[in-house]
């Protein structure tokens, strides 16, 4: 019974992610085909990678006929943040999360799925995470397929506005805890200021790398100024 509820809870929680992914991956599909990839390749990339920044850069490497080493390094740097997230997430898992479940669910650690799982009050169960991953992957893959196959059909204004979906969701995740806890507010503002500085003053830093630097610095500051005692932490 509980298994069933957890699964359904995951599916529901994943819907906003799926909608946001749909709009973003729609754009990815358009780009990938423009760069010369087939519709099938674009869809397979989305299905096997499930990551926005890494894929966007990956198809650029493919279009430029970069080496496989370059491809590996680009993915490593852009997606390194997932390693931090995976460690953080590993601290809030239900005992049901055996090695087999971890091996499977690791596939679905994305910024958004991580955000949902790590801010969950209850420990994360495999069923809950699989529920989110299933709808999110569906949205991501379907969006890529439609974008790659029929990018020109939707009005441009609508596609542009959909670009805000994911960020709107991020805001919905961080604002309530930041309004409640001064320490989180400080970390959020610090990260935002650092990231803005990186964006305008250090434009040579890649997006993925800038996020790693800013998030690490802001979290370190939070940990130094407001160390979290037992219960509240992760």
């Amino acid at each position: 019974m509980r298994q069933h509820t957890e699964w359904k809870e995951g599916l529901t929680a994943g819907i906003p992610i799926a909608l946001g992914y749909f709009s973003v991956s729609f754009g990815f599909g358009i780009t990938a085909v423009r760069l010369g990839l087939s519709v099938v390749s674009s869809v397979i990339i989305s299905l096997t990678n499930l990551t926005s920044a890494g894929q966007a850069q990956g198809v650029q490497v493919m279009a430029a006929h970069g080496s496989l080493l370059e491809m590996a390094l680009v993915q490593l740097v852009i997606n390194l943040r997932y390693a931090l997230m995976a460690i953080s997430l590993s601290q809030n898992l239900d005992p049901k999360f055996t090695l087999r479940h971890r091996l499977i669910a690791a596939y679905g650690i994305t910024d958004e799925i991580f955000a949902l799982c790590s801010t969950r009050k209850k420990p994360v169960t495999p069923s809950y995470m699989y529920g989110i991953i299933l709808v999110a992957t569906l949205g991501w893959t379907l969006g890529t397929l439609l974008g790659a196959a029929a990018g020109e059909i939707l009005p441009a204004q609508l596609i542009s506005a959909l670009g805000l979906m994911l960020y709107g969701m991020f805001i919905a995740i961080i604002v309530p805890p930041a309004a409640k806890e001064k320490s989180i507010l400080l970390v959020v503002i610090t990260a935002a200021v650092f990231s803005t500085v990186c964006y305008y003053l250090l434009p040579f830093l890649s997006g993925g790398f800038a996020v790693i630097l800013c998030a690490t610095a802001a979290s370190l500051l939070g940990a130094l100024l407001f160390p979290v005692r037992e219960e509240a932490a992760v």
């Binding site: 961080i174 990231s195 800038a210 996020v211 998030a215 940990a223 979290v228």
Partner: peptide
Amino acid sequence: VMLRSFLYYIPYAVLAAMTIPA
């Protein structure tokens, strides 16, 4: 405690850095 606190803040920091100014 230091590492746990760091990991506690990471999700908020990552999301904030990804959102602003993008």
